[in-house]
Amino acid sequence: MTEDVNKQEHATLFLGCPEVPVQMGISLYLSHMLRKSGRQVTIAANPSVIKLARVADPERHYMDKMIDLDRCIGDIAEKKRSTDIAILFAHNDAGITYAATVRYLHPGRLVLVLFGRHAEELVSSVDFPCEMIVEKAVHDPSGLRKKIDEVFQWPA
């Protein structure tokens, strides 16, 4: 008999300002798919996003563990918390600044989702190593979902 040493992979979604509509829908989808593929998921988000998620998903079928964005980063900085995959959503300079912070603190896989009207312009300000998903999506999440599916290759 072999001991099962498989550790469940842990993903953290970092969500900033919710003013671009696609962020909430695509993050609910991504959280669902990550969980469905066997991963543990934590949502690190600003208070507005947490309120939106709690209203949209009251029984927490899609988003379960949630933590304040700055507290999560503080915990990572103090080595109280870690994750296998960090997935960051950014549609403005502040989002890139948060992503650069997580990149500095988290040595593992980092996926940066650039979206919103200025998604393509933001690419030039990313000067740290990461996997990037770029889609000029504001209201329609279809293109973003397709690119996310390509990156994560969900099991059938």
């Binding site: 900033g16 502040a94 989002g95």
Partner: peptide, 8 residues
């Protein structure tokens, strides 16, 4: 001091 909704 950076905030997600308001920039730096």
């Amino acid at each position: 001091f950076t905030k997600p909704c308001y920039g730096t």
